[in-house]
């Protein structure tokens, strides 16, 4: 093992990192766009409830409040699932780069121990 071969090996190992990152971050963005759409929908329903309260006072219940609340909770839950997927994707990207970095740091440590690389 020498510095040149470690560098060559590392470059080979990370050759796909660009594509992986582009893909993962693209997927995160697509999911985020979906999430924003869902959020807009449940916020609109929430606004309906609050508009009714403003017009009729807080003691009167919106005729469809139960139904609206149910739908809002459903959409929030869907958003949460989407967000959990995004977290997994972000953690995957982090893991991929951390794995390569860790391997490189370990190899650098070995080269330094062998005196093949200045500390």
């Amino acid at each position: 093992m020498d510095p040149s071969s470690v560098l060559d090996q590392t470059i080979q190992d990370v050759s796909n990192l660009q594509a992986e990152f582009t893909h993962i971050l693209g997927e995160i963005r697509a999911s985020d766009t979906q999430l924003l759409d869902q959020r807009k929908k449940y916020m609109q329903k929430d606004s309906q409830i609050h508009k009714f309260i403003r017009q009729h006072g807080s003691l009167q219940e919106h005729p469809k409040e139960q139904e609206l609340s149910e739908k809002i909770r459903e959409k929030m839950s869907a958003c949460k699932n989407l967000q959990e997927q995004k977290c997994t994707m972000a953690n995957t990207a982090l893991y991929l780069v951390a794995k390569h970095l860790s391997r490189l740091e370990k190899n650098i440590g070995l080269l330094e121990e062998d005196g093949l690389l200045a500390p």
């Binding site: 990152f21 995160i28 967000q83 995004k86 982090l94 780069v97 970095l101």
Partner: peptide, 14 residues
């Protein structure tokens, strides 16, 4: 290291 720092920030943001 830079890529990892940014990936970590994205993971935190999510």
């Amino acid at each position: 290291e830079h890529a990892k720092d940014m990936a970590l920030l994205v993971a935190r943001r999510e």
